[in-house]
């Protein structure tokens, strides 16, 4: 488990942005899932997930993101991701998820796409 894992939220132009840093794996994914679930419960159907500071992403993390994406789309929203690190992007490419998630290079771009 990575000690440096952190999660933060803010609102940019009225759009909730959840930023994760460090390693997201089976140990650290639950807080991320809870955070995303809480936002969904409070009626936020669209959430930007900023993964710019993420250094490792395992299958649990992918599962959390896919689950959150489904929930968002069911309520008419979306879950844009912010990723630039090729090592992180790679697993999305391999698994075909780049065709499912809208992926942006900056938080501003992601927010603009849904604001």
């Amino acid at each position: 488990m990575d000690q440096s894992f952190q999660i933060a939220d803010e609102e940019v132009n009225g759009v909730p942005v959840v930023s994760a840093t460090g390693e997201i794996d089976v140990a650290t994914a639950p807080p991320l899932r809870d955070r995303l679930q809480a936002l969904a419960t409070s009626g936020k159907s669209t959430v930007v997930v900023n993964l710019l500071g993420v250094t490792f992403l395992d299958s649990t993390a992918l599962g959390v993101l896919v689950g959150a994406l489904k929930r968002c789309r069911e309520s008419g929203g979306d879950l844009p991701l912010v990723i630039t690190e090729p090592r992180i992007l790679k697993v999305f490419e391999i698994t075909g998820l780049t065709g499912v998630f809208p992926i942006y290079a900056s938080v501003d771009d992601a927010v603009r796409s849904v604001a």
């Binding site: 794996d25 089976v26 395992d58 649990t60 599962g63 391999i94 698994t95 075909g96």
Partner: peptide, 12 residues
């Protein structure tokens, strides 16, 4: 896609 994610899970 489901199967590919499952492969990632298996590797993990």
């Amino acid at each position: 896609q489901v199967a590919s994610l499952a492969i990632v899970k298996s590797v993990d």
